[in-house]
Amino acid sequence: MRWVTYRSPADGRERAGLLRDGEVRAPDATASLLGLIEADGGLAAAAAQAERAPAEVVDAAGLRLRAPIPRPPAVRDFLAFEEHLRNAVKALGRTDLPEAWFEQPVFYFTNPAAICGPDEDIAISPGSAAFDYEVEVAAVIGRRGENLTPDDAEAHIAGYTVLCDWSARDLQKRESTIGLGPVKGKDSATSLGPVLVTPDELEPYRSGSGFTLAMSGSVNGQRYGGGSWSDIYWSFGQMIAYASRGTHLRPGDVIGSGTVGTGCILELSGLYGSERYPWLQPGDTVRIEVEELGAVTGRITAGVEPVPLKPG
């Protein structure tokens, strides 16, 4: 199944719909996709209702889609591709890979209030001159769980979607010296969409810890880099199991994969950018694409000027 969140052409309300044969069929006039996930029977029951007696049927062409889960309870973004880790460490002028990364998945919490749809303008983070994109996949949690095993965790996935983690590399570098994480370096925008694809749709592509599906990023129509989801080191089952240790995962929680190898400008040009792969500027258009999941597009706009702060 493929699900979207959209604004109805009839009344402007945000609702969830089943995407099939060029149509979007809403099973309910008011239900969100998160509401359908949480309801008895989950998405399977909602799909049956959408086919049998939809509240609305609209042409998918021309619909302005929202993020599948516009307001997730939490967003955890992992770093699960080894090539990205190696390239990023080199770009930052370091030589040693962190041993802990090979012992456990690692993540940071990003901002659930900064979720953007699959075709929204993206403002450069205030004060940044090194704005970047990241090519990622995300899993959306479908039911509650805690202290899960990797095998159990897979069964908690409602579906997958494309994720772009917009990153201010200069802010991130400076903030990282404090040891609290990326902070404002990754706080302004995370794009999700265009669809939520249920796990059964991807089973034919399963390979190793991931799936043989291409992931790529382009700027102004020029392909920059990317790789395959099958290159992932930590599986989503492992990442979700780790995220659930000692805490509750909730329906709608978003779990990001981290960047595929060469899936960002930092990897291609280093911390200072390059003429071939410059940092993003107002007017640029970025496209992040994953086979079978579709693409998100971000048109880059100027950010606001940061308000000066004086200590004390």
Rank of each mutant, 00 (worst) to 15 (best):
residue 270 G to F: 05
residue 232 I to Y: 05
residue 298 G to E: 12
residue 117 G to R: 07
residue 106 V to H: 14
residue 237 G to K: 08
residue 97 L to G: 04
residue 14 E to L: 14
residue 218 S to E: 07
residue 132 D to E: 07
residue 244 S to H: 04
residue 74 A to D: 10
residue 172 Q to S: 09
residue 118 P to T: 11
residue 229 W to V: 00
residue 9 P to R: 07
residue 125 S to D: 07
residue 165 D to M: 05
residue 194 P to H: 12
residue 108 Y to T: 14
residue 167 S to V: 02
residue 202 L to K: 01
residue 98 P to C: 07
residue 301 T to D: 01
residue 231 D to S: 07
residue 231 D to E: 13
residue 34 L to W: 10
residue 20 R to H: 12
residue 93 G to P: 09
residue 94 R to Y: 04
residue 88 A to I: 11
residue 280 L to K: 02
residue 64 R to S: 11
residue 200 D to C: 02
residue 267 E to N: 08
residue 295 A to E: 10
residue 161 T to Q: 09
residue 223 R to Y: 04
residue 13 R to Y: 09
residue 108 Y to P: 06
residue 29 A to D: 10
residue 4 V to C: 06
residue 291 E to Q: 15
residue 87 N to F: 05
residue 258 G to I: 13
residue 308 P to I: 02
residue 201 E to R: 10
residue 272 Y to S: 14
residue 49 Q to W: 01
residue 300 I to C: 14
residue 200 D to T: 01
residue 239 M to N: 06
residue 255 I to M: 10
residue 178 I to F: 12
residue 257 S to R: 00
residue 59 D to C: 01
residue 239 M to E: 03
residue 28 D to E: 04
residue 84 H to W: 02
residue 224 Y to H: 10
residue 229 W to E: 03
residue 74 A to S: 08
residue 58 V to T: 00
residue 124 I to D: 08
residue 89 V to I: 15
residue 260 V to H: 09
residue 311 P to E: 13
residue 31 A to F: 07
residue 91 A to L: 13
residue 86 R to A: 14
residue 35 G to D: 12
residue 254 V to T: 09
residue 191 S to M: 12
residue 153 A to F: 09
residue 217 G to E: 00
residue 194 P to G: 13
residue 291 E to F: 14
residue 285 T to E: 15
residue 241 A to Q: 00
residue 246 G to A: 01
residue 226 G to N: 07
residue 101 W to S: 15
residue 288 I to Y: 15
residue 143 R to N: 08
residue 198 T to E: 04
residue 94 R to P: 07
residue 16 A to N: 11
residue 252 G to Y: 13
residue 107 F to I: 03
residue 246 G to R: 02
residue 122 I to R: 13
residue 81 F to I: 02
residue 123 A to F: 07
residue 286 V to S: 13
residue 97 L to R: 08
residue 268 L to P: 00
residue 20 R to L: 12
residue 77 D to Q: 05
residue 199 P to K: 02
residue 7 R to V: 09
residue 190 T to R: 04
residue 229 W to P: 00
residue 223 R to I: 05
residue 199 P to C: 11
residue 52 R to E: 15
residue 47 A to F: 05
residue 240 I to D: 12
residue 135 V to G: 03
residue 48 A to E: 15
residue 20 R to A: 11
residue 60 A to C: 07
residue 248 H to Q: 12
residue 24 V to W: 08
residue 260 V to M: 13
residue 235 S to V: 00
residue 260 V to D: 13
residue 85 L to G: 11
residue 5 T to P: 09
residue 234 W to I: 01
residue 58 V to P: 01
residue 303 G to I: 00
residue 3 W to Y: 03
residue 253 D to C: 02
residue 49 Q to F: 04
residue 286 V to G: 09
residue 63 L to W: 08
residue 13 R to K: 13
residue 166 W to V: 01
residue 112 P to V: 01
residue 245 R to Y: 05
residue 158 A to R: 15
residue 182 P to F: 09
residue 119 D to E: 15
residue 190 T to N: 10
residue 299 R to L: 04
residue 207 S to N: 09
residue 180 L to R: 12
residue 247 T to K: 04
residue 292 E to R: 15
residue 298 G to C: 03
residue 202 L to D: 06
residue 208 G to M: 01
residue 135 V to M: 07
residue 81 F to Q: 00
residue 282 P to H: 04
residue 37 I to V: 12
